[in-house]
Design a binder for these strands. Structure first.
Lengths: 250, 250
DNA sequence: CTCCGTTGTTGCACATGTTGCAACCGCCAG
DNA sequence: CTGGCGGTTGCAACATGTGCAACAACGGAG
């Protein structure tokens, strides 16, 4: 493991929070100012950091690489037009989460029309047990993979409706599989609800999910359930674009 | 300058192109496989790389940091809803480019409805002399800044309509300033045209520009000019959201 | 205007972290 | 079964990264 590279990556994380001075970076890393300066120079030269008003912030080359990486996921460019239309028809925020390796992450987000913004962020992991997209993916994993996920979950009680045990989550996933869609009824943030449905790849495996999400004051769960026919049609269309040929709903 | 960090960043650039094996990474850097392996392990641990099917590709943590960085730009979250609506009304791709330090970069892009995709990419620099957004920003820079930009441009003739001299560019920028908008008539890619207008910050300085862009087969320049009232209104709205209070068009 | 403290920067000696090597393991094709 | 290839690891050598001391610039207080 490379200590120098770890330091550099740690700097990038630190300056992404908000612009930072050289001294703050040196303090954060616990190194001499001259060490921090050299690391920052190298990050700047590579486009991963830049200086604005005497403070260091993230460089635009990193942003370009991130977009390049998203385009490589295959799913994002295929799904994005569908998500935009779905968000447009319902006026609510739409998320796409994908199973990437052994975690589920948000890979796209299309904002709804309202002024309220949801805190989810592309690139970040999903809470698999509280989020609609997490449950919509977990419900269709093979048992061994699913149990590995369940074993890693902390079952924290974020709100009164959070799922707090593996048994309760298994029951919820069984319900999800039976009806073909998942929901989040304020289980992570009390004021947010969503419905979600799975997306299949060419071989019929569930690799992603899409959700329609809104603050409950604007759209309680019952109202979001009204989006389900359109949502599951959208997921079927994305699945077909990925080469899935199954006739029934994904 | 840190050689080890340079190597790590070079690895991230290399694997962002497409997934790469350990041997390819070692060959690209000119180092031993064990050296490349240690660097990749550190990048993986920091979330900047991951393994898929025995090959290394970009990690999702980098994607999350990029979105965080874009949110820090102040402009992107403010402008994005306006861009989405503008793209929706016209059905064409909309770009937002921002003056960041001493370069102009694409910071947002909302795809149009057609199947054709434009090659522009968020995070990447703009060609200031061929692109509408580049010209819309350059036209309003103070003379010293503008001349610095003009001095750095290579004036390559990408197409028959490219601007190929500083004099021609100065004339074009004067026209842009006089009429309040810029255009790209296939100057970088012959098949693409656009119109663009400037965005001002709270102090009235032009800090960004928005363009409506389309393949010429779908929307020749004359047709895109029809979008100009809506485009300049949108830029005025974004400018007001940034605190600009000038009464006339930006 | 002067002085002091803070921040950013640089040259250099040296400590240490990085590096390549050799060997190993697993896999696959012949 | 064998050989080649790719991924991995322990270790000694050495090349690089590091902290230190000193310097310059800047801003604020007196």
């Amino acid at each position: 493991m490379s200590q120098t590279v770890q330091r550099a990556l740690s700097i990038v994380e630190f300056i992404a929070e908000r612009p930072r001075s050289l001294g703050e970076v040196a303090g954060h890393l616990g190194v001499h100012r001259s060490t921090a300066l050299r690391l920052l120079h190298t990050l700047r030269e590579g486009g991963f950091a830049r200086i604005v008003g005497g403070r260091y912030t993230v460089g635009l080359r990193l942003v370009a690489l991130a977009h390049q990486a998203l385009d490589q996921l295959d799913l994002h460019p295929v799904a994005h037009p569908h998500l935009v239309r779905l968000a447009d028809r319902h006026g609510h925020t739409v998320h796409l989460a994908q199973l990437v390796g052994d975690e589920i992450v948000y890979v796209d987000k299309v904002d709804g029309r309202g002024a309220l913004r949801l805190s989810s962020r592309v690139g970040r992991p999903v809470n698999p047990q509280t989020s609609g997209v997490g449950k919509a993916i977990l419900a269709y994993l093979d048992e061994a993979s699913r149990e590995r996920f369940l074993a890693r979950i902390s079952y924290q009680a974020y709100t009164a409706t959070s799922i707090t045990s593996p048994e309760a989550l298994r029951a919820e996933l069984a319900r999800t599989a039976a009806r073909g869609w998942a929901e989040d009824d304020g289980e992570y943030e009390e004021v947010v609800a969503c419905v979600a449905a799975p997306v299949r790849d060419a071989r019929g495996r569930v690799v992603a999910a899409v959700s329609v999400t809104a603050p409950r004051v604007l759209a309680p769960l019952e109202r979001l359930r009204g989006c389900l026919p359109d949502l599951t049609d959208t997921c079927a269309a994305i699945s077909r674009d990925l080469g899935w040929t199954g006739g029934d709903q994904p």
